[in-house]
């Protein structure tokens, strides 16, 4: 289980987890439960959970290269009309110093050539309003803004 560093605050959710798929799953459960208590629409919760899943999976697989030794710091901060996410890890930097463009995966191919991956950054880019990345003192810092629908 992730280290239980969930902030007790109503305003912000913070959590440290180890870089392993089971930790990601447990962290998403905690985050989702916290968002549920914030009374956000189900679609927004689904969006945040999916974006976090894709980001955290990428950190586990790429930044830490599948090693379970790394730590990932996660913050969720709901604001007026949006939800800000921050993810920090000390794994390897993003290639080229920037996050992938996340182009739509080409499905107009024979069945045998259909892609089994490459959807992650497309989904993140598609669902987020803004993505910012910086390398800071040996850490990757990713800041993602998820818009709330006008009615929320």
């Amino acid at each position: 289980m992730p280290q239980q560093e969930v902030s007790r605050s109503d305003r912000i959710f913070t959590l440290d987890l180890r870089s392993a798929p089971e930790e990601v799953r447990a962290a998403l459960g905690l985050a989702s439960g916290w968002l549920l208590a914030r009374d956000l629409p189900p679609q927004v919760r689904g969006t945040v959970e999916l974006v976090l899943a894709e980001v955290l999976n990428n950190v586990v697989e790429h930044a830490y290269g599948g090693l379970c030794r790394g730590t990932i710091h996660l913050e969720i901060l709901p604001r007026e009309g949006r939800i800000d996410l921050a993810i920090r890890d000390t794994g390897s930097a993003m290639p080229g110093g920037r996050p992938p463009p996340g182009e739509r995966v080409d499905l107009d191919v024979p069945e045998a050539d259909l892609p089994e991956g490459g959807f992650g950054w497309f989904l993140i880019r598609h669902l987020a309003e803004r993505v910012r990345y910086r390398r800071e003192a040996g850490a990757n810092v990713l800041e993602i803004r998820i818009p709330l629908p006008p009615s929320a």
């Binding site: 998403l28 999916l50 899943a53 894709e54 892609p115 991956g117 959807f119 992650g120 989904l123």
Partner: peptide
């Protein structure tokens, strides 16, 4: 819930 890994699977 499904993520891109699940979709790929």
């Amino acid at each position: 819930f499904i993520d891109s890994s699940g979709l790929g699977a």
